[in-house]
Design a protein around this nucleic acid. Structure first.
Length: 548
RNA sequence: GCCCCCGUAGCUCAGCUGGAUAGAGCGGUGGCCUUCUAAGCCACGGGUCGCAGGUUCGAGUCCUGCCGGGGGCGCCA
């Protein structure tokens, strides 16, 4: 079986080799033939669309090609293949032998915690910048979606074989920070908030926490408030299980002489993409597909947020990342075009920047959605949510749905410790496996999963075959999740694996199964499933408890 | 007005870049506990895939136009 621990790698390779042999060097198919899990039992274990892809190339009917393909595959797979059959418009369905299933299971076990790892063709040096909420308030529930997404994606990409650096970029200078300082001072003085000021309850807390908040310079108050809020944000992230390699301060880009910001602006100006008009300095982003040019330095001499980003993007370029991921909220989505134009203006390739769109989160309870605006002060913080439903449920629910769709998070459901709650269902399957294996002597389990273990020759039950195939699908699922930046696929996979296992568990007695070789095989299946559930949950940042 | 995301079961959502009879959870109905965790299992019911065209052997998936929901179009960040 394949060295990389993918039980399907060999099968896929055989299908492609057979397709190539049938094609005999003639023409070029429109796509690589695919190996798919059959949806219905009558359609075998796996199927391939290769014949239908080759039909237009060879000018022969797909069913006739499928026949030749079947002959080739039979030769290549030997004893792994029970038989192949042609079906529908030209699918070739493959029915695998019990021996193949047992070998697949052995491959899963041999891979250990590296199961599904290293599928990336090349290792990309990747930086993922996420959350990046400004320290003008505590993290809100919506930030929990960004944090869960970015962190899970980072874990998935690493397991897939990329090198990932996690960064949190925060704005600690400029208008909003000044406004924060003024808001705190106003509270300290019992005065009215400035126009558009921060109204949250935490601002009152900061006013009393900061020494001399009513009297010292407002910039000092602002700096202290940022410090306190940033510490609070970091604490929340730690609690949430989200690790960053670096918190990048925007202010540092403005410090020194010349500052990084000044140097970056000089760089784009030297490349001829800067001009002055109406007293302001502009970046000609329209050269690179933006719909209008953007201001870098305001007419009052103050650099814009974009100016800082020019410097930040240049900084990342200089650090040699080959791929930049920057999940953004839908409210900031339009800004991505400016950033891509900026990269181009710096002489880089805008295609190296990817900005997956993260849609809003609505907390639902009794049909009521809570608003989450920092400035209006009516919000649910991430800490509130974690207090309410816990880290595991929060992360799982945040990752359950595709990131580019708005998410209705049902707090009432997430709080439940019952079968209705998918995260408990998955964790329960893991706990059940651990509990069952605990009742066996360690040596018994070790012998059952040893490379030379004997699993006998008994005909596999349908539940056993299904479980092996679900396990074997993991490397492919992981690759999809990584390549499509879609952690929710792992959440879906974990739920399905738990379902298939539970069905197996209800129908196939493990402990005490006769003969002993059958018990060994089922122990091996259970252990492999437990590990894979733990692996999948781990990629999502959700714990896999041994007892519940 | 222009740009981006989304319309799939009563509800919340998957659907592997064009494949076979469109799936899951919840909710509903009906079964199943002397046996490894019933926090569970099994069965049944439930659909004009927003609408209308188009592309081809084949469309929930790709193209165009409508309709509906959300977001964005500052010298805010």
């Amino acid at each position: 079986m394949a060295a990389d621990g993918d039980p399907l790698a060999e099968l896929t390779a055989s299908v492609r080799a057979a397709a190539a042999a049938v094609r005999g060097g003639v023409g070029e198919p429109s796509a690589q033939p695919r190996l798919e899990r059959s949806r219905h039992q009558a359609q075998g274990d796996y199927s391939t669309n290769a014949a239908m892809l080759l039909a237009p190339v060879l000018g022969v009917g797909p069913r006739e090609i499928a026949e030749r393909l079947g002959a080739e595959i039979e030769g290549l797979l030997g004893e792994d293949l029970d038989h192949a059959e042609i079906a529908g418009p030209g699918f070739l369905n493959l029915v695998m032998t019990d021996g193949w299933h047992r070998r697949a299971l052995a491959t899963v076990l041999a891979a250990g915690d590296q199961f599904g790892a290293g599928g990336a063709k090349v290792c990309e040096r990747t930086v993922i910048e996420f959350v990046s909420a400004n320290p003008t308030g505590p993290l809100v529930a919506a930030s929990g979606r960004h944090a869960a997404y970015g962190d899970a994606l980072a874990r998935i990409l690493e397991h897939h074989g990329h090198s990932v650096w996690r960064e949190y970029y925060f704005n600690d200078a400029g208008n909003q920070i000044r406004l924060l300082g003024a808001s705190v001072q106003a509270r300290a003085r019992g005065a009215a908030l400035p126009a558009g000021g921060y109204q949250g309850e935490y601002v009152v807390g900061l006013a009393s926490e900061i020494d001399g908040s009513a009297t010292v310079d407002v910039d000092v108050v602002a700096a202290r408030a940022v410090e306190l809020l940033l510490a609070q944000i970091k604490a929340t992230l730690v609690r949430y299980g989200v690790r960053f390699d670096r918190f990048f301060s925007e202010r540092t880009l403005r410090e020194g002489s010349p500052s990084d910001l000044e140097q970056a602006l000089a760089l784009v100006e030297g490349r001829g993409h800067v001009y002055r008009s109406e007293g302001a300095t502009w970046l000609r982003t329209t050269t690179f597909g933006d719909d209008k040019d953007r201001v870098l330095v305001r007419s009052n001499g103050e650099p814009t947020y974009l100016a800082a980003d020019v410097a930040y993007l240049q900084d990342k370029r200089e650090r040699g990342f080959e791929r930049q991921l920057m999940p953004v909220g839908s409210d900031h989505h339009a800004y991505v075009r400016e950033l891509k134009a900026t990269i181009a203006a710096l002489g880089g390739d805008p295609e190296t920047l990817e900005a997956p769109l993260i849609q809003f989160v609505h907390l639902v309870e009794g049909g009521q959605a809570a608003a989450m605006s920092k400035r209006l002060g009516s919000f649910v913080t991430l800490d509130d949510l974690l207090d309410e439903i816990g880290v595991d449920a929060t992360r799982y629910f945040m990752l359950q749905r595709s990131h580019d769709r708005t998410l209705d998070l049902d707090v009432e459901l997430a709080r439940k410790k019952s079968r209705e709650n998918p995260v408990y269902y998955v964790q329960y399957a893991h706990a059940r496996i651990a509990s069952m294996l605990r009742r066996l002597p360690d040596e018994r389990v070790a012998a059952a999963v040893a490379p030379d273990g004997d699993w006998g020759e008994a005909e596999l039950q349908v539940w056993e075959r299904d479980l092996v195939k679900k396990l074997a699908a993991f490397p492919g699922e992981l690759a999809e999740a990584a390549e499509r930046r879609a952690p929710h696929r792992i959440a879906g996979y974990a739920l399905e694996l738990a379902q298939v296992f539970t069905s197996f568990y209800e129908n196939c007695r493990v402990r005490g199964a006769e003969p002993e070789t059958l018990e060994s095989q089922r122990i091996a299946l259970s252990l492999a499933t437990g590990r894979t559930i733990a692996l999948a949950l781990g990629l999502l940042g959700v714990s896999a408890p041994d007892s519940m």
